[in-house]
Design a protein around this nucleic acid. Sequence first.
RNA 1: GGACGUUUAGCUCAGCUGGUAGAGCAUUCGCUUGACGUGCGAAGGGUCAGCGGUUCAAGUCCGUUAACGUCCACCA
Length: 872
Amino acid sequence: MRKELEKQYDPKRVEDRIYQSWLDGNYFHAANDPQKTPYTIVIPPPNITGQLHMGHALDNTLQDIIIRWRRMQGYDALWLPGTDHASIATEARIAATLRAEGTSKNELGRERYLERAWQWKEQYGGRIVEQLKKLGSSCDWERERFTLDEGCSKAVTEVFTRLYDKGLIYRGERIINWCPSCLTSISDAEVEYEDQAGHLWHLRYPLKDGTGHLDLATTRPETLLGDTAVAVNPGDERYKDMVGKTVILPLVGREIPVVADDYVDMEFGTGAVKITPAHDPNDFEVGLRHNLPVVCAMTDDAKINGDYPKYAGMDRYAARREIVKDLEAEGALIKVEDHAHNVGTCSRCKTTVEPKVSVQWFVKMEPLAGPAIDAVKNGETRFVPQRFEKIYFNWLESIRDWCISRQLWWGHRIPAWYCDGCGAINVAKETPESCRECGCADLTQDPDTLDTWFSSALWPFSTLGWPDDTDDLRHFYPTNTLVTGYDIIFFWVVRMMFSGVEHMGKAPFDTVLIHGLVRDAQGRKMSKSLGNGIDPLEIVDKYGADALRFTLATGNSPGNDMRFSDEKVEASRNFANKLWNAARFILMNLGENEPAPRVPTGLSTADKWILSRYNTLAAEATENLERFELGIAVQKLYEFIWDVFCDWYIELAKISIQQGGDAAVTAKGVLVYVLSNTLKLLHPFMPFITEEIWQTLPHEGETVMLSPWPVYDGSLHFAEEEAEMERVMAVVRAVRNRRAEMNVPPSKKAKLYIATAYRETFAAAETMFQKLAGASEIEVGGAFELDSTVSIVTNEAKVYIPMGELIDLETERLRLQKELEKAEKELSAVQGKLNNESFVAKAPEAVVAAQRENAARIEGKIGMLKESIAKL
RNA sequence: GGACGUUUAGCUCAGCUGGUAGAGCAUUCGCUUGACGUGCGAAGGGUCAGCGGUUCAAGUCCGUUAACGUCCACCA
């Protein structure tokens, strides 16, 4: 006996040790070998504030499967890892820490604050990376990057200045989404809309000339403080005479005009709308068209500002209650209706976003969007599944300019300096000495930083060294596959696409593989607030990383959500254990110093059958991987290993091993060969257990993860033997089935008389029937005349078991009768087809031929069944 | 308002380019079978959401309806 494995696979004893051995071997490192074809995946950089969740686990498992497979195929496979500085999230985290210490961002000042932030990053920023390692991720850690590191920052500055010089970045006063809690602007993509129950307040604004009043409806009465007009539809007969007149704003007393604008929907409310340019994006547009003043009524933290002493300092909701009360007292409130409406919230903190007019930096999107759309239209980049192209196009086609400045400190500071003298904007890569307009030296840098996504947009090339012309950049760009969830297409994929096309002249990847969300067992989204999140590390701890990976890969089709449950992981764990025990059996039968696996000589039918099945598996699994059908590939591996290799071939091999001699040697050789190669096929999915087993088997090379990926081998294709085996297996199954039906204990053996046209095949399978079908012996012939037997009919054989005493003749007759009816029904279905002239004429010949054979087989079966019934 | 997805065995889901429905779990029956009870052998269970169409042939393609879900837009 060579080596003894434990009876049960224990991932805890294996995983960390194996991972360390891979690191020690430097196996994850992509050499940048010009002789090899590169295959590149850049990781979607997790936030440094992040904790590994199921979404990460899925995303990274898929990437690791792909990169391990490509690496084994001989590509110069690079999986480039890194993390994102996550400006808002990190600031929130640090703010909380500072609050606990009784201090604040402003108290510390920018410099000391940033020191703290970096400290925080050093302390916690690597946590998620360590967690990724637990999954077995084969990232090239030597190339690990951070969006705020020197190189990435250089890329950011380069891009900013380039786009500014091209006129694609500008600074201007616009209405933007403002988060009153994060105290920063956010982009359109960062706003989440949710339905909320609210009210529609009907208000009455009196006309200045005393001739009447104008009624209007609003969901936000408190913004009345900032009203600078009332608008009606120009085609609205009701208000025709009002346009151009002046109304008096209740509570405030401001005189504001009535304007006509197409924006107003006559059907809604009263057909008149209050216009608050400072606090509503649509109103802002109306304001621009009519030259209305912009009156801001709120502070940055969404409180009423000092211009309105009565309400000053109240937050927007308190002010709303107060203002409604006052309006009512003044008689300006006509009625209140219930009204559900969509409210924009900050995707980071869920606070209701406040539209706000302010000076910000923007990227002009239209010139960038076009080429990015083209890159997908012309096939340079494709989405898997393809339907996500639509989402991509839709977003880019209706894109608005991207607000990129953030009122935060943790991030890339905007490389713009304002001249204290002439006010000119100086955008430069380095701090300028003097103003380029007036030459004076008093310059102040813009205090804002850039949207986190501005730097992640450059990730596929900034991480490879851009803007420098590096070897890595030349070799690994464009990358191959981007793996990410559909929830991040707008934030990230779109921005990487237009950035890559703009700055590199090439789209950043050829394939975008989109996966869905991992939901809980009830199909709910996993979330912190629901508390239904499942911690992947707990799963790893309990079942092993391989079981987790296997679960995530199985039954997961691109783009679709999946449910996660412990039962599924248990099934995966059981599979790992099954494989482990198969290996254990094989090792128990191997001697010392066995040579590396190769196909032995003197193959039996069973040997050829399993080799041929394995060979097909290798071809099919590869094809599935190429099509990104990882779930199908892994399903096939599961089925082959469990149902084909373990349940059949190992049982058959036991027979040969017991026989000893050459048969035993050959069978052992085949066992090792097939197992060893199957381990390779399974390795990308279950890297740890496959490595552990592979190492204990005779092998060539240091590690399974660098062993060559199995390819289809024509010399292992044995169609005839496959057919022969399947014939015998069908009969074995049928006999087992009958015995089970009749409750024959396994210990009760019986002779089998097998009538068949394939006499040699069955005669050679006697031991198989003895071991697997409860046969004492078999006799094979063309036909038998026997009394009092149980008979079993398959398409290719009729089996008699002399066990008449065990059964009731009448039950047997009924059973056979039932089978006969079934067969006749089948036959008539097939004959119906064959009698259909258009089927015979139009269906492919092979299909027709198959049906003819089918008919012949069923006819044979019917004949045998009739004979059996007659005998009873 | 627009777009998309899902609907297949009791549950969770596969089913690629159309050729007589599959898996895991659950259920039932039988097994100290020399790798594994995290196992072995077997069984039951589906008019593939409804309707219409294309085709010799439809779970698979087209149209339509319904339920559920998601995204986008948004009228105060």
